[in-house]
Amino acid sequence: MSKTFTKAEVANFKDEKNGGLYIIVDDGVYDVSNFLEEHPGGAKILKRVAGKDASKQFWKYHNAKVLEKYGSKLKIGTVAETAKL
């Protein structure tokens, strides 16, 4: 069962030495800590968006097939809906 995260919780995971690197793509939360060396664009790019919503950057360079291939291995949860006042 996947976990639900707030954006604030995801923001705490931006350092692989202190808990890991999480990114948000659409409504999914992905732990990319163990994917740094495999990422074709390099670890630096993932570290730059760690703890943030990387949807815009992700879709700029990837298509749905990338999520189909790697998503199930890296997805750890979803982002909770937040009330808009």
Rank of each mutant, 00 (worst) to 15 (best):
G20W: 00
G20H: 00
G20R: 00
L21S: 01
L21P: 03
Y22N: 05
I23T: 02
I23R: 00
I24Q: 00
I24V: 13
V25W: 04
V25K: 02
V25E: 05
V25D: 03
D26H: 04
D26N: 15
D26P: 07
D27A: 08
D27H: 12
G28A: 14
G28N: 12
V29M: 09
V29H: 05
V29D: 03
V29Q: 05
Y30M: 03
Y30F: 15
D31E: 07
V32H: 04
S33L: 06
S33C: 06
S33W: 04
N34W: 00
N34G: 13
N34V: 03
F35C: 11
F35Q: 12
F35D: 13
F35W: 15
F35K: 10
L36F: 10
E37L: 11
E37R: 12
E37P: 05
E38R: 11
H39K: 08
H39Y: 14
P40A: 09
P40N: 11
P40S: 10
G41D: 14
G41Y: 10
G42K: 07
G42A: 09
A43C: 08
A43M: 12
K44P: 03
K44F: 10
I45K: 13
I45P: 04
L46I: 01
L46K: 00
L46E: 01
K47Y: 05
K47E: 13
K47T: 05
R48H: 13
V49L: 04
V49A: 01
V49C: 01
A50G: 07
A50M: 08
G51V: 02
G51P: 07
K52I: 00
K52G: 01
K52Q: 15
K52L: 13
K52T: 14
K52S: 11
D53K: 01
D53R: 02
D53Q: 06
D53C: 05
D53F: 02
A54L: 05
S55Y: 04
S55P: 09
K56E: 15
Q57R: 07
Q57D: 14
F58L: 10
F58A: 07
W59L: 10
W59D: 08
W59A: 06
W59Q: 07
K60V: 08
K60G: 10
K60C: 04
K60T: 14
H62E: 13
N63C: 07
A64C: 00
